[in-house]
C-alpha cells in the first residue's frame, strides 16, 4: 500500500512507462512498412516485445529508492517474511507498470488492424503475462542493486528468463488468429505465473539479503 501512495506522488513515472510502450510499438510499422497484412501478423509479437522492454525499464526503480534511503535495511529487519514484503512491492510495481500496459494494448492492437476477438486475447495474455514479468524482473533488480550500470545488467539477466512468457503470450494470440484455440497456451502461462508466484519472491528476498550486505 505504501508503495502505491508513493507511486502516486511520482505520477510522471507511470506515464513514462506507458509512453515508452506506445513509442516502441509505433516504431515497428515505420521500420517494416505499412502493409496491413504483414502488420497484422506481427502485431502480437511486437506488442509483447514492447511490453517486455517497458516493464523492464521500470524495474531498476523497484528496490533502488528503498536501497538508497535505508528503508530496505529496515524492511529486512521486520518480523515478517521478507518474501511477503517483496510480493507486495512486486504487486505495486505491476499495478503501476504492468496494468497500464494491459489497458493500453487494445488501442495499439487496433493500430495494427487486430479485431475484436484477437484484441481480447491480446489483453488476456498480457493480463496473465505481465505479472510474471514483474516477478522475474524483481529477481534481477534485487541482484543488481547498487551496481554500476545496473540497468543494462538487469536486461542481460532478465530478458532470457522472459522468453517463455513471450513465446506463449504472442503464441496464444497467433494461435487464436489461426483458429487453433489458445487454451493450451493460456493454461501454460497460468502455470508459469503460479510457479513464478511461488518461487520468485523467495529468490528476490534471498537476492536482497545478499545485495544489502
Amino acid at each position: 500500500m505504501r508503495d502505491l501512495t508513493l507511486a502516486m506522488r511520482h505520477r510522471s513515472d507511470v506515464l513514462t512507462t506507458v509512453f515508452f510502450f506506445i513509442i516502441v510499438v509505433s516504431l515497428f510499422p515505420l521500420g517494416v512498412g505499412p502493409e496491413a497484412q504483414l502488420l497484422k501478423e506481427m502485431a502480437a509479437g511486437v506488442v509483447w516485445v514492447a511490453a517486455l522492454l517497458a516493464s523492464m525499464l521500470s524495474l531498476t526503480r523497484l528496490f533502488a529508492d528503498d536501497y538508497h534511503d535505508g528503508t530496505l535495511e529496515q524492511l529486512l529487519l521486520v518480523p515478517q517474511p521478507l518474501s511477503l514484503i517483496v510480493l507486495g512491492k512486486v504487486l505495486a510495481h505491476w499495478i503501476i507498470s504492468g496494468l497500464p500496459l494491459v489497458l493500453m494494448s487494445p488501442l495499439l492492437g487496433l493500430q495494427f488492424g487486430l479485431e475484436g476477438d484477437a484484441l481480447l486475447m491480446l489483453m488476456l495474455t498480457l493480463l496473465i503475462g505481465t505479472p510474471v514479468l514483474s516477478l522475474l524482473g524483481a529477481i534481477g533488480a534485487a541482484l543488481t542493486l547498487g551496481l554500476r550500470g545496473g540497468g543494462v545488467l538487469v536486461s542481460l539477466l532478465v530478458l532470457p528468463l522472459y522468453i517463455p512468457v513471450l513465446i506463449f503470450g504472442a503464441g496464444a494470440v497467433t494461435a487464436n488468429a489461426m483458429g487453433m484455440g489458445a487454451e493450451g497456451h493460456l493454461s501454460l502461462m497460468g502455470a508459469i505465473l503460479l510457479l513464478a508466484l511461488v518461487l520468485a519472491p523467495w529468490a528476490s528476498a534471498a537476492a536482497l539479503r545478499i545485495s544489502v550486505e
Binding site: 541482484l143 543488481t144 551496481l147 554500476r148 550500470g149 545488467l153 542481460l156 539477466l157
Partner: peptide, 10 residues
C-alpha cells in the same frame, strides 16, 4: 554471459 557479467560487476 549474464552469470559472468553479474560476477564481474560486483
Amino acid at each position: 554471459v549474464g552469470f559472468m557479467a553479474l560476477e564481474s560487476a560486483i
